[in-house]
Design a protein around this nucleic acid. Structure first.
Lengths: 103, 103
DNA sequence: TTCAATAGTTCAATACTAATGAACTATTGA
DNA sequence: TCAATAGTTCATTAGTATTGAACTATTGAA
C-alpha cells in the first residue's frame, strides 16, 4: 500500500514552492488543478499526452513534497487537489499571482 | 574579453525567473541587490563567505541569463544590478512579493 | 473466483545539471 | 614589469531528471 508524504503547512518553504513551479510541465499541472477547482487524477491533469507515466508520477511527487498538492487514493485513481489554503496561508497571494501570468 | 549575455525584456520567461529564484543562495543574492538598490560586485553580494568562486560565478551567470540581473565590467570588478524595471514590466509585482517573504 | 484492464509507483539505466578546485584572463597599482 | 584582485572557464565528481520495464493495487467482467 502506497502512503503519500505531505509536508505540514508550516513545513512548506518558499524555495520548495518556487522550485516546484519553475518547471513548465509542473506549472501546467498546477494551472489545470487551479482551473478545475476540484480533484483531478494524474492522467487528467497531465500537461501533455506523450509524457512517460513514470515522469508524470515524478512530477506529482515533487508537487506533493513541495506542499502544492494533496494526493489521496480513490479506487484505482489518485485524486490530486491544490493546497490553495495552505499555500495562501504561508505565502499570501503568491500562487494566484504566479498562475495569473499567461505563460 | 568576456562578453555577457543578457536576454531582452521580452525574452524573460516566468519559468526562468522562478527557477533562478528557487535556489536559496540565488534568492539571497537577489535580496542583497534589492536591499542595496545599487550595483554590487559578485563578492559583495555573495550569499556566504565560504562559497567557491566558481560556484558564485555560476549563480551570477544563471541570474543573468534568467534576466534578473545586468552585469557590466568596471575595472577589475563586475557590477551587478537588479533588472527591476524589466522584471516588473514582464511580471508585475512578482519580484517584490517574492522578496517580501521572510525566508 | 479468476483474469484482464487501469492507474500509478518503484527501480535501474542513462542523460543532464550543479559544485568545486585548478588553471586561465583582464585590470589595477606598486 | 610584476604581483594582487576579481571573475571566468574547464574538467571532474556528485546529484537530479527522464524513461522503459517491472511491479502493486483496485475494479469490473466472465
Amino acid at each position: 500500500m502506497v502512503q503519500f508524504v505531505h509536508p505540514q503547512r508550516d513545513e512548506i518553504t518558499l524555495a520548495g514552492v518556487l522550485a516546484a513551479l519553475a518547471d513548465p510541465m509542473r506549472l501546467r499541472i498546477v494551472k489545470s488543478l487551479a482551473a478545475q477547482n476540484d480533484c483531478m487524477s494524474c492522467t487528467e491533469a497531465a500537461p501533455c499526452p506523450d509524457m512517460a507515466k513514470s515522469t508524470l508520477s515524478n512530477h506529482f511527487r515533487i508537487l506533493r513534497e513541495a506542499g502544492l498538492i494533496r494526493t489521496s487514493k480513490q479506487g484505482v485513481q489518485h485524486r490530486n487537489v491544490l493546497r490553495e489554503e495552505d499555500i495562501n496561508a504561508r505565502f499570501p497571494r503568491l500562487l494566484k499571482m504566479i498562475l495569473s501570468f499567461p505563460e
